[in-house]
Structures are given as structure tokens and as C-alpha cells.
């Protein structure tokens, strides 16, 4: 068994290779908006460091979001094409699940929070369970005020982690919530791969086409004539890249 893991749904992108016992190789990059250029070479790097060819991979695990739309599509498009080209099974996991997995030994209620841009956050609650964490309730999209209200309403000691939590550290700490540090602020492909292994073993897998990104937000319906203007052939003023998430 050799699992290729891809997690690109936040500003950090990462790639890992794992077998049934351990993570064999991983690579990650914390530079935003470089997912597209990073993932391909990182996959090749991990394979080469292990002395393995691409045809040895037996399954692909990928983060489905929620997160940055352009980033998560890089991971899913790459994973789908790779898996389809070799007829491999796939496992898709929410980045929030992967994030919470890092705190699987706490006895507090866990809240994983990813920055959703535009003043909003994605979050979900988890509790430690045998073999990892168990999600309680659905994935949510809302403001920090809504999140703080929800945390207080639980009446429990909460451990909050993720880049969305770090961005509002003071507000959360004022609400007497423990905020985990930047070392566990982003979902990582190594955790994703590790988390997916039992699913591959139990054959709880999907076909590449079944992978659906978790957007949690309708597409921005602005036509963006100004963006299209860039396509006309290079006479336009260069526009700074915008993340449409």
C-alpha cells in the first residue's frame, strides 16, 4: 500500500506519501498562491526521495476543503487526474477533519477553524475518539462573533485551532478559549494520508469522479469583465492577482 496525500485548501499546500505503517515523505509550502506550481514538483520529490515510481501509488487522498477555492481545486484536479490515469481509488476528507486530527489526544472539545476570507470563518466541532477525532455537527460558515457565541454556548472547555482561530486569537482568549499555536494552524497532507490509511484498508473509498469540493459558499456571480480584459492579448495594465475565495 502506498498512499499519495494532497492538501491544498488553505494558504499552505502540502504533499505526503504514506504506507500502512507510517508517513514516508512529506513536503509543504507556506507561501500563498503557489499551490499550482508547488504540488507537481512536490509529488515528484516525495516519490524520488523514497526511490519509488508513480506507478507504485495504490491510492490518492485529498483535502476537499472548505478553504480557498482556487487552492482546493488544484489539489482535487491533480488528485482526480492522477487517480483516473492509474485507475486508483480515492479518499476525500474535509480539511477541518484533518486539522482537528492534530489535537486527537486532548480531552477538551475541539473546534477547527479555517479562514474563509471576507470576514468569515469555516468551522466544525470535534471530540477525541479511538483512532482519531469524531465530528459533532456539520461544517459551518459564519463570522467570528457567531463562532464566539457558539463556543460560549457549549459550556465546555474548548480547544480552538486553525489559521482562522489565530487571526482572532485575542477575541477567543477573551472568551476563555484555549487557542492552539501556529504549528497546528493548517491541515497537513501527512495527517491527511495517515487519516486515510484505515479507509483504504477497509475499502471505504470512492472513484475519482465522486470527489466533490466543499465550497460552503455560492460562486461569486460577478462577471468580471475586467478580469476578462486581461485575456485580450497583453495590452492591458497588469492587475494584481486576486483570490476569489
Amino acid at each position: 500500500m502506498l498512499i499519495l496525500g494532497l492538501e491544498t485548501s488553505t494558504l499552505r499546500s502540502s504533499v505526503a506519501l504514506a504506507d500502512r505503517d507510517r508517513v514516508l515523505a512529506s513536503a509543504s509550502l507556506g507561501v500563498p498562491r503557489r499551490h499550482g506550481e508547488f504540488v507537481g514538483p512536490a509529488i515528484r520529490f516525495c516519490l524520488e526521495q523514497c526511490g519509488l515510481a508513480a506507478d507504485r501509488v495504490t491510492g490518492v487522498a485529498v483535502g476537499l476543503g472548505p478553504g480557498l477555492f482556487t487552492g482546493l481545486r488544484v489539489g482535487i484536479a491533480t488528485a482526480q487526474a492522477f487517480a483516473a490515469a492509474r485507475h486508483l481509488p480515492v479518499v476525500g476528507l474535509s480539511g477541518l477533519d484533518v486539522l482537528a486530527f492534530q489535537e486527537r489526544y486532548t480531552d477538551r472539545l475541539i473546534c477547527a477553524v479555517i479562514d474563509a476570507r471576507r470576514g468569515e470563518l469555516f468551522w466544525a466541532f470535534y471530540r477525541a475518539a479511538p483512532g482519531g477525532v469524531q465530528r459533532e455537527g456539520g461544517l459551518q460558515l459564519g463570522t467570528i462573533d457567531t463562532l464566539v457565541a457558539e463556543l460560549i454556548a457549549t459550556g465546555e472547555e474548548c480547544l480552538v485551532l486553525g489559521d482562522g482561530a489565530l487571526a482572532h486569537r485575542e477575541l477567543l482568549e477573551d472568551a476563555e478559549v484555549v487557542v492552539a499555536g501556529p504549528d497546528v494552524a493548517w491541515p497537513d497532507a501527512a495527517d491527511l494520508a495517515e487519516l486515510s490509511v484505515p479507509r483504504f484498508l477497509r475499502e471505504q473509498t470512492q472513484q475519482p469522479l465522486d470527489l466533490q469540493p466543499i465550497y460552503l459558499r455560492a460562486a461569486d456571480a460577478r462577471i468580471g469583465w475586467e478580469t476578462r480584459g486581461r485575456m485580450h492579448g497583453g495590452r492591458q495594465q497588469p492587475t494584481p492577482p486576486t483570490d476569489r475565495s
Binding site: 506507478d55 481545486r73 488544484v74 484536479a77 491533480t78 487526474a81 492522477f82 483516473a84 492509474r86
Partner: peptide, 9 residues
């Protein structure tokens, strides 16, 4: 991204 996935695999 899809093209890279195909080329790699």
C-alpha cells in the same frame, strides 16, 4: 493541475 496529474501518473 489536471494535466500535471496525468503527466505524473
Amino acid at each position: 493541475s489536471a494535466a500535471k496529474g496525468l503527466a505524473l501518473a
